[in-house]
């Protein structure tokens, strides 16, 4: 009995280790129909003037400078496609939308794998400072998912103390804690998994990375942990900035608890709490409906509601 118990105690972990290592994946098989490959890139890389206000108006007139600019930034593994519906929706608006591509995104699997969260954040800072240096004073942000965390990180570190204060910061399904329970142990199991493959429709393969290297998930975990700890201590928003977080009630990617933590830990400069609106939705980044397999009237209504609320504060 004792011998068999010892055998189990020794052989069990050995068997598990062999199983895990044999289950290791090498590099993913990437074909040319995927954003991960070396053929399809985010269109903003070819024509930045169609996406970035700083590129489209390098010498803005006084009339241009009087316009309100909304910097829209997407989430982890996504691309400028995520905010394209709002850009199209705003075609006739008085404000302008600068839809940026986070560094490391919209390129190739290898570019993504090599990127750090600081690289993702760099694209936000770059466009903001270009606009600031051009003379814009009315600048707002909308950040979905990971960009919510990146904007919180900028506030946590006091970045805006020496810059133009944003008029508004909107969060759409911001991530501070993940919904997927296994995401927090990727630093342990990641080297064995190498990457995670997301089962997404073929059309989405052109706009979202299908393969997510574990290194990038670790980067994501690092920035959201930093932000969570910052919120635990307390973060104060830039002077005069209005902040609102919109979150799906049952977000499958960025736990709705994220918005609870933001509500608790982030204060407006006057000491008041931020605004929050929970959406009757079970999709992540509910403002992006294009390419969804089916869209209900409620989901359309949620999107239009948020678009209208943001627009109202940009005019």
């Amino acid at each position: 009995m004792k011998t068999s118990l010892k055998n189990i105690l020794i052989a069990g972990p050995l068997f598990l280790a062999v199983f895990l290592f044999s289950a290791c994946s090498d590099a993913p098989e990437i074909n040319d129909s995927l954003l991960d490959g070396n053929v399809i890139f985010d269109p903003s890389l070819y024509a930045p003037e169609d996406y970035l206000v700083s590129a489209k108006y390098p010498n803005p007139s006084a009339e241009d400078l009087d316009k309100h600019i909304l910097i829209a930034s997407h989430g982890y593994s996504a691309s400028t496609f995520e905010w394209q519906e709002f850009v199209d929706w705003s075609a006739d608006a008085d404000y302008r939308v600068s839809s940026l591509l986070l560094d490391g995104h919209g390129r190739s699997y290898e570019d993504f794998k090599a990127s750090k969260w600081e690289d993702w954040r760099a694209a936000i800072i770059r466009e903001f400072e270009l606009l600031e240096n051009l003379g814009y004073t009315k600048i707002s942000f909308v950040g979905s998912s990971t960009s919510g965390a990146l904007l919180l990180e900028l506030m946590e570190t006091g970045y805006f103390d020496k810059h133009v204060k944003p008029k508004n910061i909107f969060f759409v399904d911001p991530i501070v804690v993940p919904t997927a329970k296994l995401q927090t142990i990727v630093d342990i199991v990641g080297p064995m998994l190498v990457y995670l493959e997301v089962d997404q429709p073929a059309e989405e393969d052109k706009y979202w990375y299908r393969f997510r290297p574990y290194q990038t998930i670790n980067e994501l975990n690092e920035v959201i942990q930093k932000v969570r700890k910052g919120l635990e201590k307390g973060i104060v928003a830039p002077s005069g900035t209005f902040i609102k977080s919109f979150h799906s009630k049952f977000d499958p990617t960025a736990s709705t608890t994220s918005t609870v933590l933001i509500y608790k830990g982030l204060r407006l400069s006057d000491g008041n709490k931020i605004a929050v609106q929970l959406m009757d939705s079970e999709i992540h980044v509910f403002t992006r409906l294009s390419l969804r397999p089916s869209v209900s009237a409620l989901e359309r209504s949620n999107q239009q509601d948020v678009f209208a609320q943001m627009a109202a504060r940009l005019n």
């Binding site: 993940p178 049952f250 736990s255």
Partner: peptide
């Protein structure tokens, strides 16, 4: 290791497994 017995979005985000 906490085994998740519900749909993940139906538990608090601060409930993590390890």
């Amino acid at each position: 290791f906490y085994v998740n017995m519900l749909e993940e979005s139906k538990t608090p985000g601060t409930f993590q497994p390890l």
